[in-house]
Write a protein that binds this DNA or RNA. Sequence first.
DNA 1: GAATCCATCCAAAACGTTTTGGATCCACTT
DNA 2: AAGTGGATCCAAAACGTTTTGGATGGATTC
Lengths: 341, 341
Amino acid sequence: MHVTQKDIARKLGISITTVSRALAGYSDVAEETRQRVLQTAQEMGYSPHLLARRLQKQRTDTIGFIMPTLAPRFSDPFFSEFIAGVGNEAASHEYDLLVSTHPPESESEMKAYERAAKGGWVDGLIIVRTREKDERIRLLCQYKFPFVSFGRTNESLDFAYVDEDGETGIKLLTQHLIDLGHRRIGFIRPPKDMMAGHFRLQGFMKAMAENDLPVRPEWIVEGDMTQRGGEQSMAVLLDVQPGITAVIAGNDLMAIGAMHCAQQRGLEVGKDISVAGFDDIPLAAYVKPSLTTLRQPIYEIGRMTCRMLIDLINGRFSHPPQVLLVPQLIIRSSTAPPASD
Amino acid sequence: MHVTQKDIARKLGISITTVSRALAGYSDVAEETRQRVLQTAQEMGYSPHLLARRLQKQRTDTIGFIMPTLAPRFSDPFFSEFIAGVGNEAASHEYDLLVSTHPPESESEMKAYERAAKGGWVDGLIIVRTREKDERIRLLCQYKFPFVSFGRTNESLDFAYVDEDGETGIKLLTQHLIDLGHRRIGFIRPPKDMMAGHFRLQGFMKAMAENDLPVRPEWIVEGDMTQRGGEQSMAVLLDVQPGITAVIAGNDLMAIGAMHCAQQRGLEVGKDISVAGFDDIPLAAYVKPSLTTLRQPIYEIGRMTCRMLIDLINGRFSHPPQVLLVPQLIIRSSTAPPASD
DNA sequence: GAATCCATCCAAAACGTTTTGGATCCACTT
DNA sequence: AAGTGGATCCAAAACGTTTTGGATGGATTC
């Protein structure tokens, strides 16, 4: 099997302790001994057995990410980019990234969080898509288990998070549409219990209110964060009378689904109707018409979230840090002045 | 910290051994003792310390996936779906999934593979995007380290793989275009060293040859598997004289980029020029026009690859299994007869 | 009563590494 | 010569769990 420190010690006629201390750079090992150990370790292909090391040090050096996988197809480019950010940051700190996949709000999801909270599996968790009364966050706070979430919650729990200011972002976007002349604007909100959707809807309502524009209940429809959900919600919105002239979707995938629905009905997006999203995934620039959206730096968010968690694990904060990022409005071809008043 | 078997033993006044054997269901523990142990374990919130268990059992119960992350943005929905498949399958066998992110063919990537091959980190690896003379596969074969790849290589190495039959698939797709009347067909190939690209190009060349159609070298351009790469390759192809009437891209993302490029030049996709891709990511159905492509069941491939690896780790094969899946042609609006002969 | 069998428990060793608390030897100082 | 300090090494314990190889006590059989 694999080479152990015992093998190196035997070969050099020294103790396992000295091998260990030499490899770890302890100053009480002679430089000559140290070089012999390093060389032999390399020649023998020694690689530390992490399980043993981690058991002894009472750390797993592992970041856990429990990924909420939607059915029927979980095909969101957000997550590949987020994982890339998390993974690269973890690696630069010599942490491993463990990914566990579960349908959101499932029994198996909660079991995974419990497993983590009980300790010994991972050193900390990254949470995404925070919910109202998020059971996951409650559990982890109860156990005082280290975690950082990408997203806020609606309870007075004190925990570390990175979030985008969805309210400010959607206010910007709504104002953009209002400035283009739109007055009847639909909103495809994320699932009701998602906190991001709550803030985004709030931003929409505030912008409309600040411009003394009414919002009719039927202009607000719930989607499920996939293209399909966006398409279905758009079908509902396009049946509303009098017709809406613009739609904001809670994320880019839903916006792309909404555009597809409009186009299937013979409408020209960016002319007959305007559509906007949130995320600025790379695909947003490549669809036809290219999508107006709000940009959040997904990769950077992944890195930042992970770095914050590692600092938290290592006791580098006296108080949980909380960062709110302001999204950037990216205007493309999917939004234009309404075709008629 | 967390509850150990020692805590349970102390509370019940029995040995650690009996606690362990009771929890593991050994028949030489009295049923009454077993129930007491189980109940106490639950009441105390006991969760096995996996590091210790895995060290003793000499297994990590972990599947490793070293994900090739492209710059500047790694935003490929293929991978979120693939990971979902792998993750769910791993979980159903009580394996953890460790994800390590590295730019393809980087030094850090090779170090990660070496680390795995030396043992003690993960029990087996999943490889994707196999290359010509794939150093990763050579290394793992040399160490006889368990792995399953999604993709083949061009060397006579005997290893387990799941792959799609890209040659047959692209032959189907090329024939579809030829049947529509296309004679000058461009091909945006994946990076030269990617084996999938090799088979796909081969399928293209064979279909053209079987129909006695010439292939000019300038019709074959290399992209990098992203929208941007597709866009740039399409820009080259659209400058070729006499003009091509259709383009096959090595994957959906490049096809979407290619369509965008054509549209920027005022061409109508599915009329002035036909474009097709490979993958059938969900977005392919939602872009305008919806994309003709070849479907591979990404989630199922993830599951299958993982299951195969777990069986391999557990010694369930006398010979490495090799599975070739036939892609399914999905005709949508991006392909149509050429506008003019 | 002695031997045997069975149910049921447990001490010890093991996994590989790290850390603590020395032990030894040599050189220098008093 | 004795004491001290420093360089350099090492045995043992620890981490938490699993597994091996018993040990013990009671019931049954001869």
